[in-house]
Amino acid sequence: MLTIIIYDIKETNNRNKVIKKLQHYGLKRIQKSAFMGDIKLSYKKELTLALQENIQANKDSIIIIPVCNTCQEKIITHGTPLKYTEDEYVIE
């Protein structure tokens, strides 16, 4: 299922680990703090647990949003999406 993951992670080291994990699961960056891609339900549960290892619950947040097929058809974008290289991890 198409999934959007957005995050706000204060510490660069933890943020970089989260980014690497999202890329490992095949998700692609769509904004500085947002990734999107198709991920199976079984992997989504695994990814959720992996991401929790790299956040501080009192400072950071990660939101995982499933997007159904009907909703995918209604996605609207404006402007030019930012382009990132695969090895670009640090966002200041």
Rank of each mutant, 00 (worst) to 15 (best):
T48C: 12
Y43R: 14
T70C: 01
N58P: 02
L49K: 15
T70Q: 08
K83Y: 09
A50I: 13
I65S: 02
Y84D: 04
T77P: 05
K83A: 12
S42F: 05
S33C: 05
E86L: 13
L82M: 10
Y84V: 04
L51A: 03
K44A: 08
E53L: 11
Q72E: 15
E53K: 15
N69F: 00
I65C: 11
E86P: 04
T80G: 00
K44L: 15
N58F: 08
L47H: 06
N58R: 09
I76S: 09
I75T: 13
A34F: 03
N69P: 09
T85P: 01
I55C: 08
G79I: 00
E73F: 08
K45V: 03
F35S: 07
N54R: 11
T77C: 04
I64M: 07
D60N: 07
I76A: 09
S42K: 15
S33F: 07
I63Y: 10
I39E: 01
E46A: 10
Q52V: 00
A57E: 14
H78K: 07
I55Y: 12
K44Q: 14
T77I: 09
N69W: 02
P81L: 04
K83S: 13
S61I: 05
L82H: 07
N69T: 03
L51F: 03
I64K: 02
I65V: 11
Y43I: 00
P81M: 01
I64G: 02
P81W: 01
I76M: 14
K74F: 12
G37A: 03
Q56W: 10
L49W: 06
C71R: 00
K40A: 13
Q56D: 02
K40D: 12
I63F: 11
N54F: 15
A57L: 13
F35R: 10
L51P: 12
N54M: 08
I39R: 05
N58Q: 14
T85K: 14
I55E: 08
C71G: 02
C68V: 08
S42P: 09
L82Q: 13
I63V: 11
N54K: 14
I64D: 02
T70F: 03
L82W: 09
P66F: 02
